[in-house]
């Protein structure tokens, strides 16, 4: 793979990979490390994908796996907070929803990230994470329930 090809691949998917890693790790440095690992793995992978959707799903799956491994490896560490909400959010309402999602357990953040942030369907998330659709729906339900507890009101799609 040439540098231009690698660069094009990076430009196409880096946003998604980074956001998934960030939502899972909640730490900018870790997210960047995971993103680097994932792209290096992809660049050296001797495999082609039939379409962009499958390639993107593969990258997300690799990202999730790397994040899990990383979290297990670091075990306990006082992390640097996720992207500074103040720099991203323009009002209190945005800050509230962003910080509420960030405070969810990792598995719930992930499904929220993929469902609401990346626009995947429950079926696509299930296939990507190799879970049943029921499991994904359950996690989405629990995530919304937790968000309701945190925000004090229902969330809408």
């Amino acid at each position: 793979m040439t540098r231009d090809e690698m660069g094009a691949l990076y430009d196409q998917y880096s946003g998604t990979v980074y956001r998934v890693a960030l939502s899972y790790c909640r730490n900018v440095q870790d997210a960047e490390d995971v993103m680097q690992e994932v792209f290096l793995k992809r660049f050296t992978l001797d495999r082609s994908f039939p379409d962009e959707g499958q390639e993107k799903a593969w990258l997300i799956r690799m990202t999730v796996n790397r994040c899990k491994n990383l979290l297990k490896a670091i075990k306990r560490r006082r992390g640097v907070p996720l992207e500074d909400a103040a720099g991203l959010c323009v009002n209190d309402e945005e800050t509230g929803i962003w910080e509420a999602v960030a405070s969810l357990p990792a598995k719930y953040r992930l499904v929220i990230r993929l469902y609401y942030g990346e626009g995947y369907s429950v079926g696509e998330i299930a296939a990507m994470l190799r879970r049943s659709e029921t499991a994904v729906q359950t996690q989405l339900y629990r995530a919304r329930r937790l968000l309701k507890d945190i925000l004090g009101e229902e969330v809408t799609p």
Partner: peptide
Amino acid sequence: MKNMQLYREISARVRPRAACREEILTVAE
């Protein structure tokens, strides 16, 4: 009611540092 559309909009603003691209491509090469 909190609209998850807000979350979607904020997410779209999250991008890796520009320097990451160069770092990764250099390491890959």
